[in-house]
């Protein structure tokens, strides 16, 4: 069973969003990291880059796979997680601590289109 945390928002492409004072902290879920295997690289946007909901903003790579990341919300990148440059395995060890980017949202209402933990659990159950 994949771990799901209450209080976060989830996308169908397995990103999670945590809201901190109007800032969206974005990462990938436990389900996503498990299906990737050992993550060796995270391709992240730079500070000030714009991201749009449901559009690619980067990718995670394992030895034999690559998976694009889709922005669950739109906005401006404030920061990417520099720790992942040296230690991408953080996403495997603790996917909910290993955030990828922080985004200043341009449309906070977009979170209403995401799933809560219960809906995501149900979504996963249908997948598995």
């Amino acid at each position: 069973m994949s771990k799901i945390i209450d209080g976060l928002f989830y996308s169908e492409s397995h990103e999670w969003v945590k809201l901190e004072d109007g800032i969206a902290v974005i990462g990938i879920t436990d389900f996503a990291q498990k299906s990737m295997g050992s993550i060796v690289y995270v391709d992240m946007p730079d500070e000030d880059d714009e991201v749009s909901r449901n559009e690619e903003f980067g990718a995670v790579e394992s030895v034999k796979a690559a998976s694009d990341l889709y922005a669950p919300v739109s906005g401006t990148v404030m920061e990417h997680n520099g720790e992942l440059e040296d230690d991408p395995g953080l996403l495997n060890r603790d996917p909910y601590a290993g955030w990828i980017i922080k985004v200043r949202m341009s449309d906070p209402a977009e979170t209403s289109e995401l799933m809560d933990s219960a809906a995501y659990a149900e979504f996963l159950a249908r997948q598995e």
Binding site: V40, Y41, A59, E61, S62, V63, K64, A65, A66, D68
Partner: peptide, 13 residues
Amino acid sequence: TLQAREQHIRREK
């Protein structure tokens, strides 16, 4: 190494 860049994994990407 760095095979995630390559056609046999990324295909059209």
